[in-house]
Computed example of a mutant assay.
Amino acid sequence: MPNDNPIEREHPNDPLHGVTLEAMLTRLVDEYGWDDLASRVRINCFANDPSIKSSLKFLRKTPWARKKVEDLYKATLR
């Protein structure tokens, strides 16, 4: 059956295409909770008074941390 979603047709092998950082982070928090997320991705914004807003601010400025979050998100999809 052909794929009717044009976004998925253009990027069929990129699970991050069209997914915002906020959506990724929200899903990870829903899946693991802040404590487990902080143990999986060792960054302070997940361990000390975590919030979506503060974490997004940090992740947008810190490429290595964003990569770790993206990698965990991709692993969670499997």
Rank of each mutant, 00 (worst) to 15 (best):
M1K: 02
P2T: 06
P2Q: 00
N3R: 10
N3C: 10
N5P: 09
P6A: 11
I7S: 13
E8W: 06
E8F: 13
E8G: 02
E8C: 09
E8N: 14
E8H: 15
R9Y: 03
R9L: 14
E10P: 08
E10F: 15
H11G: 00
H11W: 14
H11R: 14
P12L: 08
P12F: 04
P12H: 12
N13Q: 12
N13S: 13
N13I: 07
D14S: 12
D14W: 06
P15E: 01
P15D: 01
L16S: 12
H17W: 11
G18D: 13
V19N: 14
V19Q: 09
T20W: 10
L21M: 15
L21F: 05
L21D: 07
E22A: 14
E22K: 14
E22Q: 14
A23R: 15
M24C: 09
M24N: 14
L25F: 00
L25T: 08
T26E: 13
T26V: 14
R27P: 03
V29A: 09
V29N: 13
V29C: 04
Y32A: 04
G33L: 08
G33T: 01
W34N: 03
W34L: 05
W34M: 05
W34R: 04
W34Q: 00
D35Q: 03
L37W: 07
A38T: 01
A38F: 06
S39T: 12
S39W: 08
S39L: 11
R40A: 02
V41L: 13
V41R: 08
R42H: 04
I43E: 01
F46T: 01
F46V: 03
F46K: 12
A47P: 06
N48M: 05
N48Q: 10
P50H: 00
P50Q: 04
P50Y: 10
S51Y: 00
S51P: 12
S51V: 12
I52R: 06
I52S: 09
K53P: 04
S54R: 03
S55N: 02
S55C: 06
S55V: 11
L56H: 05
K57S: 11
F58G: 00
F58Q: 09
L59N: 07
R60H: 05
R60S: 07
K61T: 03
T62R: 04
T62W: 10
P63D: 13
W64D: 09
W64L: 00
W64N: 02
A65K: 05
R66E: 09
R66K: 15
R66A: 08
K67N: 01
K67P: 01
K67R: 02
K67T: 06
K68N: 00
K68E: 06
V69Y: 09
V69N: 05
E70P: 03
L72W: 07
Y73S: 12
K74M: 06
A75H: 02
A75E: 11
A75D: 12
T76S: 01
L77Q: 11
L77G: 04
L77R: 01
L77K: 11
R78A: 14
R78I: 01
R78W: 07
R78V: 02
